[in-house]
Design a protein around this nucleic acid. Structure first.
Length: 872
RNA sequence: GCCGGGAUGGCGAAAUUGGCAGACGCAGCGGACUUAAAAUCCGCAGGUCCGAAAGGACUGUGGGGGUUCGAUUCCCCCUCCCGGCACCA
């Protein structure tokens, strides 16, 4: 990747310790800066350290991926947490003998680079690449084990050319198309604004300039073609959080219903149809209630409304008012709370089921971008229609009655609106007496037979508009020729390079449109002049397939090699913020399905398992500059070390929950690391035997340490396999260290010389302690590994195994309850049978006193847990 | 409004299958070391009450009810907080 070489290699100013005496190898004070800078240097000198093996490796593969960051210039604590989780997992998998792929890259196109360019007069490319250099250095300093040889940078041509290649494939397959669509337009800037740049309906840069809605031709990707599969395959994603699957399901929003055509009635005025024609197609999930339809409601932007208003200035003004109300509500984010308004058009439409004429209205609560932008209004059986009909005194006609469980009972009129689906039709011509569900089927079939409608499925999901009138993005590889129309750039001419030195500070239209050498192209068909597409692609394109590129990052003939991707995919574990639950993760799934249909891959889904970590908050709020509660990772690393920063972000809360950052908490973690360090400085000894010491050769105190060790290995291993509560893993390791301190104190007070067994045990415990620590605090673990005299790589040292027999307690203190209340404790052998334990409990003096004079009703024994004596 | 998630000491949290609530850590208090402090090491610690103490009683996981020998955990109702979606026809 030649472009990568232009990036300055990370230069690091790891704080080297000023006190030179601390260069003594076994200074008994833990100095994170000394330890970390030493290992940092070593790790930098080995670029192959974290490299994944080739796809033909005989080892089992494991692909662990954290969402790639936008290179804003600084890492924040949310990143640290995300990457600490992934890094711990990657290291754990390495130690378990897997061929691990753990890559990192940069989602480096996007608006902030343009804003920075305008503010600081720095070209977007320079600004972005500079930020990448800074953040890469931060990541390296934090000790994350990435295979940097696979690094991808989406804003560089060797990556984005494949965006263009994919776009051509979408176009080829008819899945990329152009259509007119509304955009936010600031007349002052003469450019398009993203939704988040519209503040209170005005431009973010021109506070008193109202943003207009303009219709522009835009490129769309036909994600709706996959809507059904995207929905269906959610079932397969058992390794994804239920929350994310539900969010995606709602986002796709599949809705079964019926399309019904209402013809405009022109009996009185045959002056005719406008361009939109004379048919209003409505979508309804309740076609069974159509005999109760007493009006048709159109969205204010409906084309038929435009026709009707064309010759009616009064109507036009009222409709414009409705549009304004709707837009205002949408911007305020409460379209659901909008006060319903409507205006009658004065025209009528004909209900094809009964030939009835119903008035046609325009209403501000009808959305043009859902369904057909038109509904039939059934006030008796819909909340919204009811509210509207009450307000405008429209007819309310009951056509469904509840079904009584008791056939004898006379059915009374239900309170309105009656929206339940369980009911029976009345006043519905031939369908009276039919139950709702049945009626929907019959009436849909009837509509289709008669040619005025059909059963239909509507999705909330819309096609993906990918055009951005922006500079810093992937150029869309299309040409417009006077003669040949829209012509794709031939594959061999890719990439269409984003020009440099474009003045984006000027307002007025798309920046690329002002670069004549870019705009003026040649039609590949006729050789004549052609205008290049000047829009760029949405940056979500970049992140929709980047994880495939990691498997074969330097391929210059294809986005990646299919066989290689097949080896690595699906991603075994994907980790990122829940804020990407919908857009990024739905686009990624869509892209995967499209690539599968192209024959590039064989997997249906990109990621087997998904983990969404919680946010990092401070003082009860998300960290933000405006609140002044931002904690800087650099500062934490400088003060406490990378290990402490990482360990704390894992310790303070389970990874899936929000983490409340407390500066005092990280100090405690640093103390803990110091405790381990000092213990090993005092006790480090080479581990000679591979065999675990037999329990019989140990004293009770030693046996207790051995037991604690095996319990700790079990707890940490189980969590990696299961629920990922690293906070409890770390507390388990703390408990082990505390036990070692207690043991050390008791041992030194008892005798000055240690038995050979206890020396061997201590060596075994320390070695395993370092192994357990390795995924969480790699710097210190490596230092201690060396201190123990170990020669091999800690990264690939075998993860410790526990012995269930050694982990088992021999004696247990069991609580004894009387009527469920704790009344005493007895100590019994772990495997003591029920009779023995109950007898012991009953024999206990204190318990006898509590039972005295009462009758024992029941004795409950839960092995290893408790005894409960129920008395009267 | 709908869909998720959550509420446990002064604070972050733990309790993995209905079985000793508060592990581990922070802050706090006491002690050791020190001329002193920092650092370190050891100990105490949910609340209320009784007791000189050892110890004991009661109470306690947002609120109310239920199931159970036993509920932080299961069921019903309610309150508040966080996130997502929202006139979706």
């Amino acid at each position: 990747m030649p472009q990568q070489d232009k990036l300055q290699e990370a230069t690091i100013t790891a704080n080297t310790n000023q006190h030179s005496e601390s260069d003594r190898p076994h200074d008994n004070r833990y100095n994170p800066q000394r330890v970390e800078s030493k290992w940092f240097e070593r790790w930098q000198s080995d670029p192959q350290l974290y490299a994944a093996e080739e796809a033909n490796s005989s080892k089992k593969k494991y692909y662990v991926l954290e969402m790639l960051p936008y290179p804003s210039g600084v890492l924040h604590m949310g990143h640290v947490r995300n990457y600490a989780i992934g890094d711990a997992l990657a290291r754990y998998m390495w130690m378990n003998g897997y061929n691990v792929l753990h890559p990192m890259g940069w989602d480096s196109f996007g608006l902030p680079a343009e804003n920075a360019a305008i503010q600081n007069n720095t070209p977007p490319r320079q600004w972005t690449l500079g930020n990448i250099t800074k953040m890469k250095a931060q990541m390296k300093r934090l000790g994350f084990a990435y295979d940097w040889s696979r690094e991808i940078t989406t804003c560089l041509p060797d990556y984005y050319r494949w965006n263009q290649w994919f776009f051509l494939k979408f176009y080829e397959k008819g899945l990329a198309y152009r259509k007119k669509s509304k955009v936010n337009w600031c007349p002052q800037c003469a450019t398009v604004l993203a939704n988040e740049q519209v503040v209170d309906g005005c431009c973010w840069r021109h506070e008193d300039t109202l943003v207009e809605q303009r219709e522009l031709e835009q490129w769309f990707l036909r994600i709706t073609k996959y809507a059904d599969e995207l929905l269906r395959d959610l079932e397969k994603l058992s390794g994804w959080p239920e929350k994310v699957r539900i969010m995606q399901r709602n986002w796709i929003g599949r809705s079964e219903g019926t399309l019904v055509d209402f013809k405009l009635d022109y009996a009185e005025d045959r002056s005719g149809f406008g361009p939109a024609g004379g048919t209003i197609s409505v979508f309804t999930t309740r076609v069974d209630t159509i005999f109760g339809a007493t009006s048709v409601q159109l969205a204010p932007q409906h084309p038929i409304v435009a026709d009707l208003a064309a010759s009616n200035a009064d109507l036009r003004a009222k409709v414009d008012q409705l549009i304004a109300e709707q837009r205002k509500a949408k911007e305020a984010g409460d379209i659901g709370e909008i006060e319903k308004h409507g205006v009658p058009t004065g025209r009528y439409a004909i209900n094809p089921f009964n030939g009835e004429k119903v008035p046609v209205w325009v209403a501000n609560y009808i959305l043009m971008d859902y369904g057909t932008g038109a509904i039939m209004s059934v006030p008796a059986h819909d909340e919204r229609d009811y509210e509207f009909a009450k307000k405008y005194k429209l007819e309310i006609r009951l056509v469904v009655l509840p079904i009584s469980n008791d056939p004898e009972e006379t059915v009374t009129e239900p309170p309105l609106p009656f929206v339940a689906h369980e009911g029976m039709l009345i006043n519905s011509g031939p369908y009276s007496g039919v139950e709702c569900a049945d009626a929907i089927k019959k009436m849909s079939a009837h509509a289709e037979e008669k040619g005025f409608g059909k059963a239909s499925i509507t999705y909330r999901l819309k096609d993906w508009g990918i055009s951005r009138q922006r500079y810093w993005g992937t150029p869309i590889p299309m040409l417009y020729c006077e003669k040949d129309g829209i012509v794709p750039v031939p594959e061999k001419d890719l990439p269409v390079i984003l020009p440099e030195n474009v003045d984006i500070t000027l307002v007025g239209g798309s920046p690329l449109g002002r670069v004549s050498e870019f705009v003026n192209g040649t039609c590949p068909k006729c050789g004549g002049p052609a205008r290049r597409e000047t829009d760029t692609m949405d940056t979500f394109i970049d992140s929709s397939w980047y994880f495939y590129r990691y498997t074969d990052a330097h391929n210059d003939r294809a986005p990646f090699d299919s066989k290689t991707a097949q080896y690595w995919f699906p991603i075994d574990q994907y980790i990122g913020g829940v804020e990407h639950a919908i857009l990024h993760l739905i686009y990624s799934r869509f892209w995967t399905k499209f690539m599968r249909d192209l024959g590039l891959i064989t997997n249906d889904e990109p990621a087997e398992r998904l983990f969404t970590q919680g946010m990092v908050i401070k003082d009860g709020a998300k960290m933000s500059k405006s609140l002044g509660n931002v904690v800087s990772p650099d500062e934490m690393v400088a003060r406490y070390g990378a290990d402490a920063a990482r360990l704390y972000s894992l310790f303070a809360a389970p990874p899936d929950r929000d983490l409340d950052w407390q500066d005092s908490g990280i100090e405690g973690i640093q103390r803990f690391l110091g405790r381990i360090y000092r213990f090993l400085v005092r006790n480090a000894a080479p581990y000679a035997s591979v065999e675990t010491l037999p329990a019989s050769s140990l004293s009770p105190a030693e046996r207790q340490i051995q037991r604690k060790l095996h319990q700790t290995i079990k707890r940490v291993s189980d969590d990696f396999q299961g629920r990922w509560h690293f906070n409890t893993c770390i507390s388990a390791i703390m408990e082990l260290v505390n036990a070692l301190y207690a043991y050390e104190e008791s041992a030194t007070s008892e005798s000055q010389t240690r038995s050979s067994a206890s020396a061997a045990l201590l060596a075994e415990v320390q070695r395993n302690l370092v192994l357990l620590l390795a995924p969480f605090a790699p710097y210190l673990a490596h230092e201690l590994w060396e201190m123990l005299g170990e020669k091999g790589s800690l990264l690939k040292a075998a993860w410790p195994k526990y012995d269930a027999a050694l982990a088992k307690e021999e004696e247990l203190e069991i609580p004894v309850q009387i009527n469920g209340k704790l009344r005493g404790r007895i100590t019994v052998l772990a495997d003591a049978p029920e009779s023995v334990v109950i007898d012991r409990a009953l024999a206990d003096e204190k318990l006898q006193a509590a039972i005295a004079g009462k009758q024992i009703v029941k004795k409950i024994f839960v092995p290893g847990k408790l005894v409960n004596i129920v008395v009267k």
